[in-house]
Simulated assay, not measured.
Amino acid sequence: MKKLSTSEVKMLLNEGKSVNIIDVREVEEVKEGMIPGAIHIPLGLLEFRLHELDKEKDYIIVCRSGGRSARAYELLESRGYTVTNMTGGMLDWNGETK
Results as ranks from 00 to 15, higher is better:
V19P: 10
I41N: 05
V19F: 08
L45R: 10
P36R: 05
M34E: 11
H40V: 10
G89A: 02
G33C: 06
A72V: 00
E74C: 08
L91C: 13
I61D: 01
V24C: 03
M1Y: 12
R25Y: 01
L43Q: 05
N20K: 13
I60Y: 02
L13N: 10
V24E: 01
D23Y: 09
E52T: 07
M1W: 11
V62Y: 01
W93I: 10
E32Y: 08
N94I: 15
V9Y: 02
T87V: 13
I41G: 02
K17L: 09
V62N: 00
V30Q: 06
I22L: 00
T97N: 08
K31E: 14
G44Q: 07
G80N: 04
S65L: 04
L50S: 02
M34L: 11
K57G: 02
P36E: 04
V24G: 03
T97E: 08
L91I: 15
Y59T: 01
T84G: 03
N85P: 03
G67Y: 09
S5H: 05
G37H: 01
V24D: 00
N94T: 15
S5Y: 08
G67D: 12
S18M: 11
M11A: 15
N94E: 14
G89P: 03
E47L: 11
I39Q: 11
E26P: 05
G16R: 06
T87C: 06
K55C: 03
C63L: 03
E77K: 14
M90V: 06
E28S: 06
L75H: 05
S78G: 07
I22V: 07
P42V: 06
E28V: 10
K98N: 12
R25A: 00
T6K: 08
R68E: 02
G37F: 05
I61R: 03
R25T: 01
R79P: 04
N20S: 14
L50I: 07
